[in-house]
């Protein structure tokens, strides 16, 4: 695209500018924040089309919130993670009634050219294992280990205490370890 996300200004400063009608701020925020919303939604839903809808809706809510954004409230990214996670959770709940043959296409996390690389295969294996976890555990593991957020920030996003986040993350990792145990040799791990 003709614009880039590199900008020294904070998300909060850019959102305030957008709230006053600055078109340039919208472009920078779009490139900076849409990947975040899409990434989380895609990993929670395991479906690219649904994740795009969630990301677009989350960003639309951000645009509408901009004129009323209060400087002292949560960081923009924390707010956006929470909205994206909640929208994805709503879709997961609706999906439970769907028959299996309407299950979504999995997200392709690796470009085709590097699809054979072991790193990409490991990433795909993890994504598949994540989808087998209970929703809340998956959410906590994604935010902690893939998005790199702190436990207090995850607690704010998920609306639970820090101890609950630690518990969900620990149980999620145990589930992942079990799910991936049979694939370690195939994915290049030598556990001996």
């Amino acid at each position: 695209m003709a614009f880039d996300a590199e900008d020294d200004r904070s998300d909060e400063a850019l959102l305030a500018l957008y709230g006053r009608g600055d078109a340039g701020a919208a472009r920078v925020l779009t490139l900076r924040l849409t990947p975040l919303a899409f990434r989380v939604a895609a990993r929670m839903l395991g479906d690219k089309a649904e994740a795009e809808d969630v990301a677009q809706e989350a960003m639309l809510r951000l645009w509408r919130q901009a004129p009323n954004w209060q400087g002292g409230q949560a960081r923009v990214t924390t707010w956006l993670y929470r909205v994206a996670v909640n929208l994805a959770t709503d879709r997961l709940r609706k999906r439970r009634g769907l028959p299996l043959d309407e299950a979504p296409e999995p997200v392709e996390t690796a470009p085709g050219a590097v699809g054979r690389m072991i790193e990409a295969e490991r990433a795909a294996a993890l994504d598949a294992a994540l989808m087998a976890l209970p929703e809340r555990q998956r959410e906590a593991v994604i935010l902690r280990h893939l998005e790199g957020l702190s436990n207090p920030e995850i607690a704010e996003i998920m609306g639970v205490g820090v101890e609950a986040v630690e518990s969900l993350t620990a149980r999620g990792k145990r589930g992942l370890t079990a799910a991936l145990a049979g694939r370690r040799a195939e994915l290049g791990y030598d556990d001996d």
Binding site: T34, P35, F38, R39, A42, R43, K48, A51, E52, A55, V107, E108, T109, A110, V114, E119, A120, R122, A123, A124, A125, L126, D127, A129, H145, L146, G148, L176, L180
Partner: peptide, 12 residues
């Protein structure tokens, strides 16, 4: 696995 997933994130 985590570092591989971080290296190959789903891209919009």
């Amino acid at each position: 696995f985590f570092s591989a997933a971080r290296a190959y994130p789903p891209e919009p």
